[in-house]
Design a protein around this nucleic acid. Structure first.
Lengths: 212, 212
DNA sequence: GTCTATAATTAGATAGAC
DNA sequence: GTCTATCTAATTATAGAC
């Protein structure tokens, strides 16, 4: 029956934040992303955070509220990383900005594959959690991406291709190898999350997209 | 608590096969792909197949055995579709074969997004089901893809890029929009599974990969 | 083969001590 | 804040009638 192993094994301890609340949130991101909302148990999340299960109900009212808080956190990190990068590129031409933003997105996807795992789990089927995820977190990123690439197309910088398709090419091609890191290790014999591999992947994706 | 709706609503009835066993397998593929192994309940699978829950244990010994049978079925369809396409291309130059196989893969991904959903769910974390999935089903496809693209690179048909990265670009860029079809509908306002959109996506991906 | 009834386990959440 | 103990509901699987 139970095939998944060692629920006791502590995860790579995060450098930042060590309050109980934050350890619970970090454990929740990991387990929700690995096992899906229904598959993750609050007991396992508690165990990974080194607390007892009822404490999750104390800090976050319910499993559902815990999920929202966890997702809020990881999307906050992505938004922060991307806006910081854009701020640092004021005055640069938009084609170069696009290339560097795609790179930044790939670096983030390798460092935090949990984000895409959660999107994949929730956006496969319509539901209340998907509605919230799309409206609150995904749509702003989508809109920004689409408007950026629409301008590049109008300017003739890239081939005339519908922006929505470009969006899914970027997210799919950029993140899938990291989402499926355990598969890749077994299949190809190397760890895609390792620095060298991430760099190669960023080169491959930007070359295919921008031709250089 | 429960946010997912209408467990009674019957799915798009499959044209092929109507024996009880096959209806259970079809329902299992849908639910395992939507909700993950742990998230899917045998009662829900039974309900969607219009049978009672203990009947699943009669036909397949356990939930685990049912999962294996369901996955076996959908991967059989993919393998059949791809080998049939390759058979029909005997004598054609390998660059054209590659383009058409990628197209075929994209058509299949749009028609059966369940396959990638299941891969995503199982290959995020090491485990017994992932081992079986990779060794029995994914590796043969990976090896074929890698050897094909390695030959194309040697021949100078495509840029010199590590084949493993190409593999994840193809599967990621090719399938993600269909895996996230509900998200795409809400985000972009169109159904990516519709014929027109699939065709456009195949054009976009093959153009980016092969330059034409 | 397919059903009803039910056993055994495990889930999320609450009560109340400290 | 954090724990122990426990409730209720839901899960997979089995027993046995038809």
């Amino acid at each position: 029956m139970a095939s998944q192993a060692s629920p006791t094994a502590a995860r790579t301890t995060r450098p930042s934040a060590d309050s109980t609340r934050d350890r619970i949130l970090a454990a929740a991101v990991d387990l929700f992303s690995e096992r899906s909302f229904e598959g993750a148990t609050t007991r396992e999340i508690a165990a990974r955070a080194n607390v007892t299960q009822p404490l999750l109900n104390y800090h976050f009212r319910s499993k559902e509220h815990l999920w929202h808080a966890a997702v809020e956190g990881i999307f906050g990190e992505l938004t922060q990383a991307l806006t910081a990068r854009i701020e640092g590129l004021r005055g640069v031409d938009e084609l170069s900005v696009a290339k560097l933003i795609v790179r930044e997105f790939i670096y983030f996807s390798a460092a935090h594959p949990q984000l895409h795992r959660i999107i994949m789990q929730e956006c496969k089927v319509d539901g209340a959690r998907m509605d919230w995820l799309v409206d609150r977190h995904i749509r702003p990123l989508y809109e920004q991406t689409v408007s950026l690439f629409t301008r590049l197309v109008e300017r003739g910088d890239i081939p005339d291709v519908p922006a929505t398709h470009i969006y899914y090419v970027i997210t799919g091609a950029g993140a899938t190898m990291f989402v499926l890191a355990p598969e890749c290790r077994r299949l190809a014999g190397f760890d895609p999350l390792e620095h060298e591999a991430v760099e190669v992947h960023a080169d491959v994706v930007t070359t295919l997209l921008f031709g250089s």
